[in-house]
Design a binder for these strands. Structure first.
Lengths: 135, 135
DNA sequence: TATTAGTTTGTAATCATTACAAATTGATAG
DNA sequence: CTATCAATTTGTAATGATTACAAACTAATA
Protein backbone atom coordinates (compact mmCIF):
# COMPACT_ATOMS: atom_id res chain seq x y z
CA UNK A 1 0.00 0.00 0.00
CA UNK A 2 1.47 3.31 -1.08
CA UNK A 3 -0.04 5.76 1.37
CA UNK A 4 -3.03 5.49 3.65
CA UNK A 5 -4.18 9.07 2.97
CA UNK A 6 -4.20 8.53 -0.77
CA UNK A 7 -5.88 5.18 -0.34
CA UNK A 8 -8.72 6.72 1.64
CA UNK A 9 -9.07 9.51 -0.93
CA UNK A 10 -9.26 6.95 -3.72
CA UNK A 11 -12.16 5.40 -1.89
CA UNK A 12 -14.03 8.65 -1.45
CA UNK A 13 -13.06 9.26 2.17
CA UNK A 14 -11.51 12.54 3.26
CA UNK A 15 -8.31 11.50 5.05
CA UNK A 16 -8.50 13.15 8.44
CA UNK A 17 -5.90 12.40 11.11
CA UNK A 18 -8.29 10.17 13.07
CA UNK A 19 -9.38 8.23 10.00
CA UNK A 20 -5.80 7.60 8.91
CA UNK A 21 -4.81 6.38 12.36
CA UNK A 22 -7.82 4.11 12.66
CA UNK A 23 -7.25 2.62 9.23
CA UNK A 24 -3.54 2.11 9.92
CA UNK A 25 -4.40 0.34 13.14
CA UNK A 26 -6.80 -2.00 11.35
CA UNK A 27 -4.20 -2.73 8.68
CA UNK A 28 -1.43 -3.56 11.12
CA UNK A 29 -3.64 -5.54 13.42
CA UNK A 30 -4.69 -9.06 12.55
CA UNK A 31 -6.45 -9.65 15.87
CA UNK A 32 -9.83 -8.39 14.63
CA UNK A 33 -10.11 -5.62 17.19
CA UNK A 34 -13.30 -4.37 18.78
CA UNK A 35 -14.27 -0.70 19.04
CA UNK A 36 -13.02 -0.77 22.60
CA UNK A 37 -9.64 -2.14 21.54
CA UNK A 38 -9.22 0.41 18.79
CA UNK A 39 -10.22 3.24 21.08
CA UNK A 40 -7.82 2.20 23.84
CA UNK A 41 -4.95 1.65 21.43
CA UNK A 42 -5.25 5.08 19.83
CA UNK A 43 -6.19 7.12 22.85
CA UNK A 44 -2.49 7.52 23.67
CA UNK A 45 -1.65 9.17 20.35
CA UNK A 46 -4.96 11.04 20.11
CA UNK A 47 -5.93 12.02 23.65
CA UNK A 48 -9.07 13.83 22.53
CA UNK A 49 -10.33 10.82 20.59
CA UNK A 50 -13.99 10.01 21.11
CA UNK A 51 -15.48 6.56 20.97
CA UNK A 52 -18.22 7.98 18.77
CA UNK A 53 -15.57 8.91 16.22
CA UNK A 54 -14.39 5.32 16.15
CA UNK A 55 -17.94 4.12 15.55
CA UNK A 56 -18.53 6.76 12.86
CA UNK A 57 -15.27 6.07 11.10
CA UNK A 58 -15.76 2.33 11.01
CA UNK A 59 -19.24 2.83 9.58
CA UNK A 60 -17.75 4.95 6.79
CA UNK A 61 -15.07 2.34 6.08
CA UNK A 62 -17.73 -0.35 5.81
CA UNK A 63 -20.01 1.75 3.61
CA UNK A 64 -17.12 2.43 1.26
CA UNK A 65 -16.12 -1.23 1.26
CA UNK A 66 -12.63 -0.99 2.74
CA UNK A 67 -13.40 -2.80 6.00
CA UNK A 68 -15.91 -5.31 7.25
CA UNK A 69 -17.76 -6.08 10.44
CA UNK A 70 -17.48 -9.52 11.98
CA UNK A 71 -19.84 -10.78 14.65
CA UNK A 72 -18.03 -13.98 15.55
CA UNK A 73 -18.32 -13.04 19.19
CA UNK A 74 -21.82 -12.45 20.34
CA UNK A 75 -21.05 -9.47 22.55
CA UNK A 76 -19.00 -6.96 20.62
CA UNK A 77 -18.60 -6.55 16.89
CA UNK A 78 -15.06 -6.97 15.54
CA UNK A 79 -13.53 -5.30 12.50
CA UNK A 80 -11.23 -6.39 9.72
CA UNK A 81 -9.59 -4.33 6.98
CA UNK A 82 -8.22 -7.38 5.17
CA UNK A 83 -10.79 -7.75 2.44
CA UNK A 84 -9.49 -10.81 0.64
CA UNK A 85 -11.85 -13.75 0.97
CA UNK A 86 -11.07 -15.69 4.12
CA UNK A 87 -12.86 -17.43 6.95
CA UNK A 88 -12.54 -16.99 10.69
CA UNK A 89 -11.98 -19.70 13.27
CA UNK A 90 -12.54 -18.94 16.92
CA UNK A 91 -10.94 -21.20 19.52
CA UNK A 92 -13.39 -21.55 22.38
CA UNK A 93 -10.58 -22.33 24.81
CA UNK A 94 -8.06 -19.51 24.27
CA UNK A 95 -10.47 -17.20 22.38
CA UNK A 96 -7.95 -16.60 19.62
CA UNK A 97 -9.40 -15.86 16.21
CA UNK A 98 -7.53 -17.43 13.29
CA UNK A 99 -7.90 -16.60 9.61
CA UNK A 100 -8.03 -19.37 7.06
CA UNK A 101 -8.40 -19.56 3.29
CA UNK A 102 -11.52 -20.86 1.59
CA UNK A 103 -12.22 -21.71 -1.99
CA UNK A 104 -15.91 -21.87 -2.64
CA UNK A 105 -15.62 -23.33 -6.15
CA UNK A 106 -17.79 -26.39 -6.09
CA UNK A 107 -18.82 -26.00 -2.46
CA UNK A 108 -22.15 -24.40 -3.31
CA UNK A 109 -25.15 -26.08 -4.81
CA UNK A 110 -26.93 -24.18 -7.56
CA UNK A 111 -29.66 -22.83 -5.27
CA UNK A 112 -28.05 -19.39 -5.29
CA UNK A 113 -27.43 -19.25 -9.01
CA UNK A 114 -29.67 -16.25 -9.60
CA UNK A 115 -28.78 -14.50 -6.38
CA UNK A 116 -26.39 -11.58 -6.35
CA UNK A 117 -23.84 -12.18 -3.60
CA UNK A 118 -22.15 -9.06 -2.28
CA UNK A 119 -20.56 -10.43 0.85
CA UNK A 120 -19.56 -13.79 2.26
CA UNK A 121 -18.72 -14.63 5.82
CA UNK A 122 -17.68 -17.89 7.30
CA UNK A 123 -17.23 -18.70 10.95
CA UNK A 124 -15.89 -21.88 12.47
CA UNK A 125 -15.77 -22.61 16.17
CA UNK A 126 -13.84 -25.28 18.04
CA UNK A 127 -10.48 -26.02 19.63
CA UNK A 128 -7.28 -24.86 17.97
CA UNK A 129 -4.16 -26.96 17.44
CA UNK A 130 -2.27 -25.30 20.28
CA UNK A 131 -4.97 -25.88 22.89
CA UNK A 132 -5.48 -29.48 21.76
CA UNK A 133 -1.79 -30.26 22.27
CA UNK A 134 -1.68 -28.65 25.70
CA UNK A 135 -4.46 -30.79 27.17
CA UNK B 1 -39.86 -36.54 14.65
CA UNK B 2 -41.85 -38.85 16.90
CA UNK B 3 -42.70 -36.63 19.83
CA UNK B 4 -41.20 -33.37 20.99
CA UNK B 5 -41.38 -34.28 24.67
CA UNK B 6 -39.50 -37.53 24.11
CA UNK B 7 -37.01 -35.77 21.90
CA UNK B 8 -36.21 -33.24 24.61
CA UNK B 9 -35.89 -36.00 27.20
CA UNK B 10 -33.49 -37.88 24.93
CA UNK B 11 -31.34 -34.78 24.91
CA UNK B 12 -31.32 -34.38 28.67
CA UNK B 13 -33.94 -31.65 28.85
CA UNK B 14 -36.97 -31.98 31.08
CA UNK B 15 -39.92 -31.39 28.78
CA UNK B 16 -41.93 -28.63 30.41
CA UNK B 17 -44.90 -27.08 28.63
CA UNK B 18 -42.97 -23.91 27.77
CA UNK B 19 -39.97 -25.83 26.45
CA UNK B 20 -42.12 -28.03 24.25
CA UNK B 21 -43.97 -25.05 22.82
CA UNK B 22 -40.77 -23.13 22.14
CA UNK B 23 -39.13 -26.08 20.47
CA UNK B 24 -42.22 -26.78 18.37
CA UNK B 25 -42.25 -23.19 17.26
CA UNK B 26 -38.60 -23.36 16.21
CA UNK B 27 -39.23 -26.60 14.34
CA UNK B 28 -42.21 -25.29 12.40
CA UNK B 29 -40.67 -21.94 11.68
CA UNK B 30 -38.04 -21.56 8.99
CA UNK B 31 -37.85 -17.78 9.34
CA UNK B 32 -35.07 -17.87 11.95
CA UNK B 33 -37.09 -16.08 14.61
CA UNK B 34 -35.72 -13.70 17.21
CA UNK B 35 -36.51 -13.90 20.93
CA UNK B 36 -39.06 -11.14 20.38
CA UNK B 37 -40.77 -13.10 17.60
CA UNK B 38 -40.92 -16.29 19.63
CA UNK B 39 -42.24 -14.48 22.66
CA UNK B 40 -44.96 -12.68 20.71
CA UNK B 41 -46.00 -15.82 18.88
CA UNK B 42 -46.41 -17.90 22.03
CA UNK B 43 -47.79 -15.28 24.36
CA UNK B 44 -51.28 -16.05 23.06
CA UNK B 45 -51.14 -19.73 24.05
CA UNK B 46 -49.11 -19.07 27.21
CA UNK B 47 -50.28 -15.75 28.63
CA UNK B 48 -47.96 -15.98 31.64
CA UNK B 49 -44.89 -16.54 29.46
CA UNK B 50 -41.87 -14.50 30.41
CA UNK B 51 -39.25 -13.29 27.99
CA UNK B 52 -36.62 -14.52 30.44
CA UNK B 53 -38.00 -18.02 30.01
CA UNK B 54 -37.51 -17.75 26.27
CA UNK B 55 -33.91 -16.67 26.79
CA UNK B 56 -33.27 -19.41 29.35
CA UNK B 57 -34.86 -22.10 27.23
CA UNK B 58 -32.93 -21.16 24.11
CA UNK B 59 -29.71 -21.22 26.09
CA UNK B 60 -30.51 -24.75 27.25
CA UNK B 61 -31.31 -25.86 23.69
CA UNK B 62 -27.99 -24.47 22.48
CA UNK B 63 -26.01 -26.01 25.34
CA UNK B 64 -27.57 -29.39 24.60
CA UNK B 65 -26.93 -28.97 20.88
CA UNK B 66 -30.48 -29.06 19.55
CA UNK B 67 -30.59 -25.45 18.35
CA UNK B 68 -28.14 -22.82 17.27
CA UNK B 69 -27.75 -19.08 17.48
CA UNK B 70 -27.31 -17.05 14.32
CA UNK B 71 -26.07 -13.48 14.32
CA UNK B 72 -26.69 -12.71 10.66
CA UNK B 73 -28.44 -9.52 11.71
CA UNK B 74 -26.39 -7.27 13.85
CA UNK B 75 -29.16 -6.24 16.20
CA UNK B 76 -30.92 -9.31 17.49
CA UNK B 77 -29.75 -12.89 17.59
CA UNK B 78 -31.83 -15.35 15.59
CA UNK B 79 -32.40 -19.02 16.32
CA UNK B 80 -32.59 -22.17 14.27
CA UNK B 81 -33.49 -25.70 15.30
CA UNK B 82 -32.58 -27.20 11.94
CA UNK B 83 -29.16 -28.58 12.70
CA UNK B 84 -28.21 -30.06 9.35
CA UNK B 85 -25.29 -28.23 7.78
CA UNK B 86 -26.54 -25.27 5.78
CA UNK B 87 -25.68 -21.66 5.06
CA UNK B 88 -27.77 -18.54 5.39
CA UNK B 89 -28.31 -15.87 2.75
CA UNK B 90 -29.80 -12.54 3.76
CA UNK B 91 -31.36 -10.35 1.08
CA UNK B 92 -30.51 -6.77 1.91
CA UNK B 93 -33.56 -5.52 0.03
CA UNK B 94 -36.44 -7.61 1.42
CA UNK B 95 -34.55 -8.83 4.52
CA UNK B 96 -35.61 -12.41 3.87
CA UNK B 97 -33.20 -15.05 5.12
CA UNK B 98 -32.79 -18.07 2.83
CA UNK B 99 -31.18 -21.38 3.65
CA UNK B 100 -28.85 -23.04 1.19
CA UNK B 101 -26.80 -26.22 1.10
CA UNK B 102 -23.03 -26.27 1.32
CA UNK B 103 -20.56 -29.02 0.83
CA UNK B 104 -17.24 -28.11 2.33
CA UNK B 105 -15.34 -31.06 0.86
CA UNK B 106 -12.39 -29.53 -0.93
CA UNK B 107 -13.32 -25.95 -0.10
CA UNK B 108 -10.90 -25.74 2.81
CA UNK B 109 -7.15 -25.55 2.59
CA UNK B 110 -5.24 -27.72 5.04
CA UNK B 111 -4.59 -24.89 7.50
CA UNK B 112 -7.23 -26.25 9.86
CA UNK B 113 -6.12 -29.87 9.62
CA UNK B 114 -5.23 -30.17 13.30
CA UNK B 115 -8.08 -28.01 14.53
CA UNK B 116 -11.16 -29.54 16.10
CA UNK B 117 -14.18 -27.95 14.47
CA UNK B 118 -17.36 -28.11 16.54
CA UNK B 119 -19.50 -25.62 14.66
CA UNK B 120 -19.62 -24.03 11.23
CA UNK B 121 -21.55 -20.98 10.17
CA UNK B 122 -21.76 -19.37 6.81
CA UNK B 123 -23.44 -16.10 5.98
CA UNK B 124 -23.96 -14.60 2.55
CA UNK B 125 -25.41 -11.18 1.90
CA UNK B 126 -26.76 -9.69 -1.31
CA UNK B 127 -29.89 -9.43 -3.44
CA UNK B 128 -32.19 -12.40 -3.85
CA UNK B 129 -33.63 -13.64 -7.11
CA UNK B 130 -37.07 -12.18 -6.43
CA UNK B 131 -35.82 -8.67 -5.71
CA UNK B 132 -33.50 -8.72 -8.72
CA UNK B 133 -36.41 -9.54 -11.02
CA UNK B 134 -38.64 -6.85 -9.56
CA UNK B 135 -36.22 -4.00 -10.20
C1' DT C 1 -48.57 -33.81 53.55
C1' DA C 2 -43.97 -31.97 53.81
C1' DT C 3 -39.78 -31.32 51.58
C1' DT C 4 -36.82 -30.44 48.00
C1' DA C 5 -35.18 -29.54 43.45
C1' DG C 6 -36.20 -27.67 39.20
C1' DT C 7 -38.74 -24.22 36.49
C1' DT C 8 -40.85 -19.92 35.55
C1' DT C 9 -41.58 -15.19 36.20
C1' DG C 10 -40.83 -10.02 36.75
C1' DT C 11 -37.88 -6.41 37.81
C1' DA C 12 -33.68 -4.22 37.88
C1' DA C 13 -29.04 -3.78 36.12
C1' DT C 14 -25.59 -4.03 32.37
C1' DC C 15 -23.42 -2.57 28.41
C1' DA C 16 -22.65 -2.05 23.37
C1' DT C 17 -24.44 0.95 20.25
C1' DT C 18 -26.89 5.07 18.40
C1' DA C 19 -28.91 9.83 18.41
C1' DC C 20 -28.06 14.29 18.71
C1' DA C 21 -26.31 18.81 19.29
C1' DA C 22 -22.42 21.62 20.46
C1' DA C 23 -17.56 22.48 19.52
C1' DT C 24 -13.87 22.29 16.46
C1' DT C 25 -11.49 22.12 12.20
C1' DG C 26 -10.69 22.92 7.26
C1' DA C 27 -11.40 24.95 2.93
C1' DT C 28 -12.87 28.62 0.12
C1' DA C 29 -14.09 33.29 -1.38
C1' DG C 30 -13.99 38.10 -0.65
C1' DC D 1 -6.29 38.06 6.72
C1' DT D 2 -11.06 37.38 7.82
C1' DA D 3 -15.69 35.72 7.26
C1' DT D 4 -18.48 32.00 6.00
C1' DC D 5 -19.93 27.48 5.26
C1' DA D 6 -19.49 22.53 5.31
C1' DA D 7 -17.42 18.59 7.20
C1' DT D 8 -15.55 16.38 11.18
C1' DT D 9 -15.07 15.43 15.93
C1' DT D 10 -16.58 15.23 20.50
C1' DG D 11 -19.41 14.31 24.83
C1' DT D 12 -23.62 13.25 26.80
C1' DA D 13 -27.89 11.22 26.90
C1' DA D 14 -31.00 7.71 25.17
C1' DT D 15 -32.01 3.08 23.32
C1' DG D 16 -32.67 -1.62 23.55
C1' DA D 17 -31.09 -6.45 23.63
C1' DT D 18 -29.44 -9.30 27.01
C1' DT D 19 -28.31 -10.87 31.75
C1' DA D 20 -28.57 -11.15 36.92
C1' DC D 21 -31.18 -12.21 40.50
C1' DA D 22 -34.60 -13.38 43.73
C1' DA D 23 -39.31 -14.53 44.52
C1' DA D 24 -43.19 -17.44 43.09
C1' DC D 25 -44.64 -21.54 41.37
C1' DT D 26 -44.72 -26.56 39.95
C1' DA D 27 -43.69 -31.31 40.09
C1' DA D 28 -41.89 -35.23 42.02
C1' DT D 29 -40.65 -37.98 45.81
C1' DA D 30 -40.64 -39.81 50.44
Amino acid sequence: MVNVGDFLKTNGIKPSYQRIKIYEFLMNNKEHPTVETIYNALNGQIPTLSKTTVYNTLKIFIDKGIAMAITIDEIEVRFDAHMDMHGHFKCEQCNTIYDFNVNFEGALSDELNDFEITEQQMFFYGICKKCKNHS
